[in-house]
Simulated assay, not measured.
Amino acid sequence: MRVGAHESIAGGVANAVDRQLEDGGNCGQIFTHSPQVWQNPNIDGDDAAAFRDQTAENDVGPWVIHSSYLVNLCTPKDDLREKSIDSMQREVEAAALLDIPYVNVHLGAHTGAGEKQGLDNAVSALDELDVPDGVTVLVESDAGSGTKMGGEFEHLGYVLEESEQDLEICLDTAHAFAAGYDLSTAAGVDETIEELDAAVGLERLACVHLNDSKHECGTNKDEHAHVGEGLIGEAGMRAFVNHAAIDGVPLVLETPNEDGKGFAWNIQRVRELREE
């Protein structure tokens, strides 16, 4: 099983590998810079080489780059659209430099343009990217609040079908739960995965953000909880990580660091649930 966490690159991107190993993970995710500002990745050649070498030597992977939170592919605003495309282009280039196969992105919000126009905006923005060989853009499921897109699996399916890019998806369990897909029971997990298969195709599921939720199903509230200790709960998380459709899909944790529990605790909990 591939399970790991979103690790900091403070002090150099190669440090993320060390942090992953300390937490007991064998795959993971990073930001290439602060996700709260417009900033270009600043990774020098030596640091990139160290990251690639340490990843290979310790059999850690796959890694995912998570794009900036400011990126909005659905936006009708020309200036934000251009900034978003430029930011994504730099992320896919950073992924190629680091031998990271995936760059993960949220679709963003249509901010009044309407769902269809928002999705079409996202498709055309993604189609402007020059994605290097060996890198795939992942569109992430969303909690679906306000005018944000990606809360419905059909949104993801539409973008994948319409785009000229060879896209895949990242399913966030807390987001899906917040968007109304009940993952708290084995039956609910089965139904959710069937809906995902119908809307997108399970062969396009490349990564899972494995997070529990602090809020009820369908509330559109995105706040992550420790694995098995939120409202998805232990039964739902156990059913999900043991589902045949998830076998072989890397699980990346974005769980909180609170109550004396961090990534190491959550990674171990996933392993225990998988073994039960």
Results as ranks from 00 to 15, higher is better:
N121T: 14
H175C: 06
E154C: 06
D247H: 03
P132S: 08
G114I: 01
E93K: 11
D59N: 15
E234H: 09
R271Q: 15
G151S: 12
A244I: 12
A187F: 09
V123L: 03
N211M: 05
D18N: 10
N40K: 10
E164Y: 10
E164F: 05
V249H: 10
E164C: 07
D18H: 08
A264R: 12
E276C: 04
V103H: 12
E22A: 15
E272A: 15
S145G: 03
A109D: 03
A179L: 10
D212G: 11
V64Q: 14
L205K: 00
V249F: 14
T32G: 08
A122L: 04
E93N: 13
Q268G: 13
L156Q: 08
L231W: 10
A113G: 13
G201V: 14
A239R: 01
D53W: 04
A225F: 01
P132L: 02
P250W: 06
F51E: 12
Q54H: 02
N266C: 12
D44R: 13
L156C: 07
V159L: 15
L21C: 09
T147Q: 07
E115W: 00
G61E: 03
S213A: 10
E234Q: 09
T75N: 07
A178Q: 09
V252L: 14
T173Q: 05
I246W: 05
E195T: 07
A225N: 15
C207A: 12
Q29P: 02
S8Y: 11
E216M: 06
F51W: 04
Q36F: 07
E203F: 01
A10R: 15
I85H: 06
A96C: 02
G112E: 11
N242Q: 11
E254N: 14
L210A: 11
D53F: 03
G262M: 05
A264D: 14
A187G: 05
Q39I: 05
N220S: 09
G236Y: 01
T173N: 06
E161V: 00
D120C: 14
G151C: 02
A48P: 10
A206D: 01
H243Y: 07
E195H: 04
H226F: 02
E93F: 08
E7T: 14
V103P: 00
H33W: 01
D120N: 15
L183S: 09
D86W: 06
S67A: 15
V92F: 00
H66T: 04
D166E: 14
Y102N: 01
V137F: 11
R81H: 10
G248V: 04
A174Q: 11
A95D: 09
V135P: 00
N104Y: 11
L98V: 02
S67V: 08
M149D: 05
D79L: 08
E223Q: 07
G248N: 04
A95F: 12
N242D: 00
V135L: 08
N58A: 05
W63F: 14
V137W: 11
G218S: 08
